[in-house]
Amino acid sequence: MLSDLRELYKYRDLVAQLVIRDLKVRYKNSVLGFFWSLINPLVQVAIITIVIKVLLLVRIPNYSAYLLAAFLPWMFFQMSLLDASDSVLKHHDLLKKVYFPREALPVSLVISNLIHLILAFIVFFIYLVTIPRAPIYSTALLLPVLMAIQFIFNLGVAFFISCLNVFYEDTKFIVAVGLNALFYASPVMYVSELAHNALMHSHRLPAAFKEPLWVLYQINPLNALLMGYRKILLSPFPEFTLRGAKLSDMPMNWGYLGIAALISILLAIVGYRFFNKRKWGFAEML
């Protein structure tokens, strides 16, 4: 694996050129360019805000800010996976002709989506200080740490799916379905506190299952990450009542973020090995 990494490092300019190509081609021929890709999450956030506030009567001030703080990283995860899934297959022609480290393809796409996330967060901060006039906390300095963990996590998953999709084209459909399920299983459109509240007040679940399920929910690296983004960027939301139960902001459990970091690193290592073992067979898949 180390020799593969060295080879990839030798080709770092290729990764850079692929990132530049991806960003250029994505926004070619459109005047608004980058803003087009912001409009999609903004519209979705607006819709979810209305659903949560008006239909479900959850009263959290500035709910849009809490949504965006998790929705933008969610987009980073989703787009990285969708882009990576056909990244190798799309360059089949090239793979058959030229030698280069194959992982440059998925890696460059995850990087270009990371750049995208950084741009989106800049817009997010401008929004934060102008519309809700919310303060920016010093904990926001931890943002690069969270993004780094998520980058490694995305990369690990991307290695698996970009490789598997060469051999089984069902992979990208499974990824699409999986993303849909994960979207609801992770605190994107709701805050983790709501999931905790629903779980603990459930009448159907035997009491013995509640604690283990909550642990399981938190072990999902996406939960730790998305919760982390919210906690470092925004103030704790004020206590409110939901179905007769008091719901208040939970402090961040940093231990789970540590677990998320460990899972991410492990996933990236195993994913890279998985990819490397199969990458020279790509060109022979006719």
Binding site: K10, Y11, D13, L14, A16, Q17, L18, I20, R21, K24, V25, K28, N29, L94, V98, Y99, F100
Partner: peptide
């Protein structure tokens, strides 16, 4: 969709 110049950089990088 890239210009000739942009393609020179991309193609060169692919060739190492």
């Amino acid at each position: 969709d890239l210009t000739g110049l942009e393609n020179i950089y991309l193609n060169g990088a692919i060739l190492g």
